[in-house]
Amino acid sequence: MNIFRLTADMTHLMSVIVLLLKIHTIKSCAGISLKTQELYAIVFTCRYLDIFTDFISFYNTIMKVIFLWTSFSIVWYMRYHKIVRRSYDKDQDTFRHVFLMLPCLVLALLINERFTFKEVMWTFSFYLEAVAILPQLVLLQRTRNIDNLTGQYIFLLGAYRALYILNWIYRYVTEPNYVHWIPWMSGLVQTLLYGDFFYYYFLSWKNNVKLQLPA
């Protein structure tokens, strides 16, 4: 475990905490895409199929449980909580899951490290995570008023992905035979998708004005 990896995981954890804070304290999920949250629940379910079969470390298992538990509870809150669900902007959040999931599944069946069920699901989770933010970015662009917590949530998600790239570089340099093209390439694509958002986030931060994406 290197410092980049630990910071990445903690940033990921913080993003989830920020989102849950918004849901719990303000009882609002305004500006949050349920489609993206559902895709994340699918991503973690497919990736962590090894949770009961392969023990890596106590840290690893705990974090997997946290990401599974929180992703499903966020979806539950947005769909079923009687107050939170009222703030969900269904008409703006129109992205279709299938358009993202189907190509990712086909790609996972074609390009993987090993053709086994668990391995294909693991690969699929990386391809899907790379594009899972798209419904959220589309919703963000449609939302005129982006509140601070939503902006911070997406910023932390993007930062987590960028830190993972540093972790991969560090591991590639320090560990022999550490080469993993599938997480690298999908991670790179995922991080690039945040580029535009980062640009406007820093601009609003620098000029001390409310974050707003151009239409």
Partner: peptide, 10 residues
């Protein structure tokens, strides 16, 4: 194995 080492990431 080098294969397993990618799965130690979250």
């Amino acid at each position: 194995t080098s294969h397993g080492s990618s799965h130690d990431e979250l």
